[in-house]
């Protein structure tokens, strides 16, 4: 039976993945890669906020723009709550600003997905190293 939660490899990877999704860079932070975590956090959050600023909160549209919304959800679970707010349709979104906002927020989500996968892979490698030692 595993002695600590880190000994349970699958659970460890799931926790790292969840941390990386909940807070961008959280997975790397948990793996003691502080600099990497800060760079990821600042870049992903800033890209997401620039998208929201350019296109308004209405660019998160779980009703009419589902594929974009799926990519935006990769930023953090908090996007789900923003989607609930914007689903009322009271926030206007139109034109080039809407397109740019949608692209920025979705790319930020996809970048965070890359970081989630990277954090899980790094955790997996660390787990293998620990098992060999």
């Amino acid at each position: 039976m595993p002695r600590t939660w880190k000994d349970n490899h699958a659970l460890f990877l799931i926790v790292i993945g969840l941390l990386a999704w909940i807070v961008p860079g959280g997975g790397h932070f948990a793996l003691n890669q502080r600099r990497r975590a800060i760079v990821i956090l600042v870049t992903v959050v800033l890209t997401f906020l620039v998208g929201l600023y350019a296109g308004s909160i209405g660019v998160i549209d779980p009703v009419n723009a589902k594929p974009w919304y799926v990519a935006q959800l990769m930023n953090s679970p908090a996007v789900f709550f923003l989607g609930q707010i914007s689903a009322s349709g009271q926030f206007p979104v139109f034109g080039r600003a809407g397109e740019i906002g949608q692209i920025y927020t979705s790319i930020a989500g996809l970048l965070n997905l890359l970081c989630i996968v990277n954090a899980i892979y790094t955790a997996h490698l660390e787990g293998l190293k620990g098992a060999r030692a």
Binding site: A54, G55, S56, P92, F94, I100, I103
Partner: peptide
Amino acid sequence: SFTTPMRIDTNAASMLWLIPL
């Protein structure tokens, strides 16, 4: 400022939005 979209024209200068991305 997060509840109303910015005014961005559909001209060549709007391509500069590519750079921060």
